[in-house]
Amino acid sequence: MALLVKYSKFGSCIKHLFQMSPQFAAKYSVYPPHFGEPIYKKQELDKLLETGGIENFKLIPFKAAKSNETCSIFHDPVVSKFINYMLIKGQKKLARQVLEKTFEQIKKIQLAKYNKETDPEKKSSIIVDPVVILKKAITNCKPLLKLTPVKRGGSYYQVPVPITDKESTFYAMRWFVHCGREKDKSVSFADFMANEFIQASNNNGRVVKKKLDLHKQCESNRAYAHYRWS
């Protein structure tokens, strides 16, 4: 872990080093295990160049950038992940259109709020960028624990266990998608989700309630927590 310590300042750097280690290689990958994940954002590369971390990558081959990755300022990894979670039967084009419509709706709502507001202090606190709202909504909905069934003495117990950051992000995104699918047919997905995202960014709404429900359930099942190790 010598390398890790040396470059622990940069999260992305650690991520890349981990992925290059053969122990973490994907089972079905067509690339050999020593191939690195590409760093396609210009800002990240500039950061690496400043610190001299780029020297370490000189002899390492890199995988090709995926077809949904670009250095454009309109690209955001969280957004593209969310598109991947919400698409059905590989209709990525449609999923992207729908999400962009949602963003448009969010922007409209927030701008209306922004223009209505007269108090300059409150006015500056209103977020108008839909991507920022989406990210905030997702972070607000990330659960801290989850329940896993554990068999003890013939019956299953729902045992609360801690989850990783990646997993909790997945839960939050999936809840949003499920929430959107449960909506009434008369409302469009874009309108419904726009409201949902704005509410979640203010820490209320259905998905936040879902998170709190899970936490409550974990709290009530805390007596089983020791089944995790015994």
């Binding site: 067509v30 590409p38 396609y40 590369l45 780029i54 090709a64 950038a65």
Partner: peptide, 18 residues
């Protein structure tokens, strides 16, 4: 060119349908 390589632009994408 080196930056493009790290960005994964100069690597042929071998991946095929499984």
């Amino acid at each position: 060119v080196e930056r493009m390589r790290i960005a994964g632009l100069l690597q042929k994408d071998y991946r095929r349908r499984e």
